[in-house]
Simulated scan of single mutants.
Amino acid sequence: MNVIYPLAVPKGRRLCCEVCEAPAERMCAACTVTYYCGVAHQRADWGSIHEKICQLLIPLRTSMPFYNSEEERQHGLQQLQQRQKHLIEFCYTVAQKYLFEGKHEDAVPAALHSLRFRINVHGLSSVELVPAYLLLAEASLGLGRIVQAEEYLFQAQWTVLKSTDCCNATHSLLHRNLGLLYMAKKNYEEARYHLANDIYFASCAFGTEDIRTSGGYFHLANIFYNLKKLDVADSLYTRVSEIWHKYLNDHYRGLVQARVQQMDLLGKRFENDTGLDEAQEAEAIRTLTSILSIRESTFNKTPQKTVFVLKTLVMLCYLMMNYSKAQEYAMRALSLAEEKQLDAQEQNAIQELLCLISAEDHPIT
C-alpha cells in the first residue's frame, strides 16, 4: 500500500479523511482520489474496503469527460449512477459480512462508503440511507460505543419517521438494531418490544418462515436465554434451526437430484450453491454455531436437537464447498447419534451426508 502526500490543495477545496472527515494529510497513490488524516485510518480503510474498490472510485471522483451531445452526457450520467448503486450494495454486503464475523472495526469504513454513495444517489433525507446508519450503529455496539450507536439509531429512526414510503424490510432492520441496543444496555423488556416488531415487519415483508425473519427469533431467544427462561429460549432456537434447515435442505436436495440426473453444474457454481450472498452465509454460520454451542452446553437432555443443528451445519458447509468442515460436523453428528442410540433412520441420514462429502472430487477449501 503506497502513499504520497498531496503537495497542493485546489483553492476553495477542503480535502477530508475518508474515515473521520478530519483534514487530510495523505493520499492513496493508486487512485489519487482518496485522502486520509494519517496512516492509521489509511490502513483501516485499505483493509476494510478500499483495496476492493480503489480503481472503481476514479471515474466517480474525477471530472466527467467532454461529451459531443446531450444524449451522450445523459448516458454518461446514467453510467455514473449505476456504478454508485453497485458500490452501495457491494460496500453494504462487505460491511454486513464483517459484522456477522464479529469484525466490527473492519465494518466501519465499508459502511461509511455505503452511506456516502447513498447520499450521492438519493440525497441527505432519503430513507435509503437507513440501512447504512443501522450498519454503523451495529458496528458501534460491537465496539462498545453505546452513545455513538444511539446517535446513528436516532438518525435512522428520525429518517423513517419523516418518510412516507418506508418498506417493511427497513422497519424490520430498524427494530432489530434497536433491540440489539437495548440488549447491550440490559433493558430486556424494551429489547423484546423492538424484536417483536422486527419479527412482525419481517414477516410482512418475507413471511414467517423466511431466513430473513429468523434473525429476530434468534435475538429474542438470546434474551430469554440470558433471563434463564430456557424453555422459551429452546423453542425459539428450534424454530430458527428449522427455518435454516428447510432452506438449506431444499438447496441440498436440488443439488443431489441434479447430480443423479447427471446435470453439468459447473456453470451454476461460479458464485456458490447456497443461494446466499457472503453476508448471509456469514450470518448462517454465526447463528447456527451459536445455537450449537448453547445446545451442547445447556440442552444436553435433547441430543436429537443437537444432531439436527449439526446436520444443518453439514449442509451449509457442503453447499459452501467447505468439505473439511462439513465432514467434521457430520462425524460429530454421527458420533452423538451413536452414543445416544438415536434411531437408525437418523444415523442413516448422517451416513448419506458423509458418503456424499467423501465422494467429492473438489479440493478442500
Rank of each mutant, 00 (worst) to 15 (best):
N177I: 06
L319Q: 00
A349H: 09
T365C: 11
S163T: 08
N187H: 13
C16T: 08
H86R: 13
E89T: 01
C28N: 06
A233K: 10
K246S: 10
H41S: 00
T62R: 08
G179E: 10
M320C: 11
K97Y: 00
H104G: 02
T93N: 13
G142M: 05
A149W: 01
T238L: 14
F299G: 00
H86I: 09
C37V: 03
E138C: 05
L129M: 06
R253A: 06
T365V: 14
F224H: 15
D361A: 12
P131I: 08
P363K: 09
L99P: 00
A29D: 15
N222V: 06
I199M: 13
P109S: 02
L135D: 05
A333E: 12
A233D: 10
E328P: 00
S203T: 15
P363C: 08
R61V: 00
N168W: 05
I49F: 02
N197D: 12
V94L: 06
G12C: 03
K162F: 00
V9K: 12
K11R: 12
Q155D: 04
E209H: 09
T34K: 06
L87Q: 03
R145P: 02
Y200F: 13
F270S: 04
D231H: 05
I285C: 02
Q262P: 03
L276P: 00
R145D: 13
C54P: 05
N187F: 06
G12M: 05
A221G: 06
R14W: 05
G275A: 12
A337S: 09
A111D: 02
A282G: 12
A22K: 13
H251L: 11
C31P: 05
L60N: 02
E150H: 00
V39Y: 02
D361V: 08
E278V: 04
E72Q: 06
Q304S: 12
R13C: 01
L354G: 04
A30Q: 14
A359R: 09
Q148D: 15
T238D: 15
S335C: 11
L336M: 15
A139S: 07
H245K: 14
R212L: 13
V39G: 01
Y133H: 05
E278I: 07
G38N: 10
L99I: 07
A282F: 10
E72K: 07
I291E: 07
